[in-house]
Design a protein around this nucleic acid. Structure first.
Length: 479
RNA sequence: GGCGGCAUAGCCAAGUGGUAAGGCAGCGGUCUGCAAAACCGUUAUUCUCCGGUUCAAAUCCGGAUGCCGCCUCCA
């Protein structure tokens, strides 16, 4: 089965052919470390985490790079506002991001380079551009000469004329052409700076990704990813610089994810409609966010609403319940599976792979998880000698699909406990009070006082607590 | 102003020529003292609207409307 991927550069789905067989080299633009990351950043990271996991499941050996922009106007501004230095700000928010990533269960990339650790690489890169006649120096700054590169605009699908027509940029007098962009910025007094052949200064934004991606991956490399907003100018500029400096193709497949919106509007710091990852994680299990993201194709926008999250939460709970039911079946009963064929399970496995190999169609892939849950629940309901091996096989399939998506990674009991505690915290109820109410109800039931018992059930239900009467007594869970 | 994307049931959402996946919610049923979970059944003659191409269109083409994004930092 071949893997098909939508390439922003061609605007089409293309069959994926790795630059070297069996290996994949991937670069994804990370964050600018000047504040806590929000749910929009999380989408990008999770989308590529799932792509990474899926490619790994296909057996590829992957080198995955995700950078940190740790020097930039916003970082400097924040440092000034807080009377500290850029380094402090950058380190603070890189640490914050790492904490978020761990919380979200994201696999760490192979390399996580920081821009300021690669200043010499960038200087070298710029020198090459000057040598080759694609860049020029003015007053200690260096600019890239956009008109020297005739491929400019091909990634974002616009012509130079269109860009000029639509320009809202303030023209910097020193540029030879309004479209030119900075490779190196001469520093103003008091600003952080590094020594360069052009004087004290700091790198332009785009150059770090060109220098670091080619340093760690060479070029051309397989994937370059990031949010859709990076297509222009960031990736367009990276591409221009790199192809001009190396004389070789930069990237084979450009992959961009859609935005997270709130009330249909892009989530972004400047609009102010953000939800930080930390805020999210206080309220929900991390896999809820992941499941929510995966329920829509990665290139489409996704609207962040409480209802959608509750939805994702129910779905996640459903999967964990299913897993929990299976695991309650005595181990010897599920036994070692034979090599027999299970057409239904194999069909679902195939469906999952077909979905994922068609431009990572996780929404469709997720539907196989629902199908699988149904099949497995039925097996547990109708458990007998004949379907035990199939159940064992199915359990493994559920776990394996889950792990490819980064879901169902927790012990069912731990998951359930976590959901309970989160819910109690949200409604401000303590566990002992719930237990006491349940005990009262059990006594009422013993007296066959069903009216009284139901009153307690209803009271708890209103608080989102559902009682489960089992042969071994009453347990409870949160809605 | 320039360029691009999207529009599928109450909600979320897949589906790029062959007669509408999946989830949530709802309804009916099995089970249960009642519930919950699970399972079974059911819920769009129709895919924003108007034209066109075709034996056949949610899917292709043209137009309209609406929403969103990029063009400035942005995942």
């Amino acid at each position: 089965m071949s893997l098909v991927i939508y390439n922003t550069f061609t605007g089409k789905k293309e069959e994926f052919v790795p630059a070297s067989p069996g290996q994949i080299k991937c670069y994804v633009c990370g964050i600018t470390a000047y504040d806590h990351s929000h749910v929009g950043h999380a989408r990008s990271v999770i989308v590529f985490d799932v792509i990474y996991r899926y490619l790994a499941s296909l057996g590829y050996e992957i080198t995955y790079v995700r950078n940190y922009t740790d020097i930039d106007d916003k970082i400097i501004n924040r440092a000034n506002a807080e009377h500290t230095n850029w380094k402090e700000i950058a380190e603070t928010y890189i640490a914050s991001f790492k904490e978020d990533m761990a919380g979200l269960g994201v696999i760490p990339p192979t390399y996580e380079p920081k821009a300021t650790d690669h200043i010499p690489d960038m200087i070298h890169f710029i020198e090459k551009l000057i040598e080759r006649g694609y860049a020029y120096q003015v007053d200690g700054s260096v600019y890239f000469s956009v008109r020297k590169y005739d491929g400019y605009g091909k990634l974002s699908g616009r012509t130079l004329e269109e860009m000029i027509a639509g320009a809202r940029v303030e023209v910097d007098e020193r540029k030879q052409d309004p479209l030119d962009f900075a490779l190196w910025k001469a520093s103003k007094p008091g600003e952080p700076s590094w020594v360069s052949p052009w004087g004290e200064g700091r790198p332009g934004w785009h150059i770090e990704c060109s220098a670091m991606s080619t340093k760690y991956l060479g070029n051309p490399f397989d994937f370059h990813g990031g949010g859709k907003d990076l297509v222009f100018p960031h990736h367009e500029n990276e591409r221009a610089q790199t192809e001009c400096a190396t004389g070789k193709k930069f990237v084979n497949y450009w992959v961009h994810n859609g935005f997270v919106t709130m009330q249909r509007e892009k989530m972004s710091k400047s609009i102010g409609n953000i939800r930080t990852i930390k805020e999210f994680l206080k309220e929900y299990h991390p896999e809820v966010l992941r499941l929510f993201f995966l329920s829509t194709h990665y290139r489409n926008p996704i609207d962040y609403t409480e209802q959608s999250l509750e939805n994702a939460q129910s779905a996640l709970q459903k999967f964990y319940f299913t897993l929990g039911r299976i695991r309650e079946v005595p181990r010897e009963a599920v036994a070692a599976s034979s090599q027999a064929d299970y057409p239904e399970l194999q069909g679902l496995e195939k469906k999952f792979h077909e979905a994922m190999s068609d431009d990572f169609n996780t929404a469709l892939g997720l539907s196989t998880l629902f199908d699988l849950a149904r099949v497995l629940n039925k097996m547990v309901d109708e458990l007998d000698e004949s379907n035990r091996p199939a159940l064992a096989h199915g359990e493994r399939l559920l776990a394996s699909i889950g792990s490819t998506l980064g879901l169902l990674g927790e012990e069912t009991a731990v998951f359930g406990r976590g959901e309970t505690l989160r819910h109690l915290k949200r409604i401000g109820l303590d566990e002992a009070a719930v237990e006491k109410a349940i005990q009262d109800r059990s006594e009422a039931r013993k007296r066959k006082d069903y009216k009284g018992a139901d009153a307690i059930r209803t009271m708890l239900l209103e608080k989102g607590i559902i009682l489960l009467d089992t042969p071994n007594g009453t347990t409870w869970r949160t809605k």
